[in-house]
């Protein structure tokens, strides 16, 4: 079936079987490799993207479900001022190790700051609860998000 949606601000139309996960559509059909596959079960959060501005795990979204909607990956936020601040804080605070969870974590953090630019530490923890990171122990990630928030 044909699916039309907006990907990082651009209108696109792709042919996809109805059971194709958005994650596979993005990675395999559209070459968006920043979206990572970690569990295919909505648990790890490595495939998190924004769907109409809200974070979702793209492994649990089927291609037809994005019809007419806006999908944003980290590639679409490179110059976004919120993302620039978040990215800089992640770099400075050592919030990135292996980097496999990083795009997903940044997407969730971005969604948090967009809706709540001055979150508490508990709100930060809650916002990234769905993004598993096995390297950093979250300490530096939480710190970086709070630092970014101070700079917004």
């Amino acid at each position: 079936m044909k699916v039309s949606f907006q990907l990082n601000g651009k209108d696109i139309e792709v042919e996809a079987p109805g059971n194709r996960a958005l994650l596979d559509l993005l990675r395999d059909d559209l070459g968006v490799k920043s979206v990572k596959k970690g569990c295919e079960n909505g648990e790890c959060g490595a495939c998190t993207v924004l769907l109409d501005g809200a974070p979702v795990t793209s492994c649990l979204v089927l291609a037809p479900q994005v019809e007419g909607r806006a999908v944003t990956t980290i590639d679409g936020l490179v110059d976004d001022p919120f993302m620039v601040k978040l990215r800089q804080a992640f770099l400075e605070d050592g919030a990135i190790q292996c980097g496999f969870c990083t795009p997903g974590v940044l997407i969730s953090s971005y969604a948090l700051l967009k809706g709540n630019p001055k979150p508490t530490a508990d709100e930060v923890k809650k916002a990234i609860e769905g993004n598993l990171c096995r390297c950093t122990g979250y300490v530096a990630i939480i710190k970086a998000i709070l630092h970014a928030s101070e700079r917004i």
Binding site: S34, V35, D75, R87, L91, I96, G99, T102, P103
Partner: peptide, 11 residues
Amino acid sequence: IRTDALDKALG
């Protein structure tokens, strides 16, 4: 700042 951090942050 890690030399590989920017690439990782940009996906």
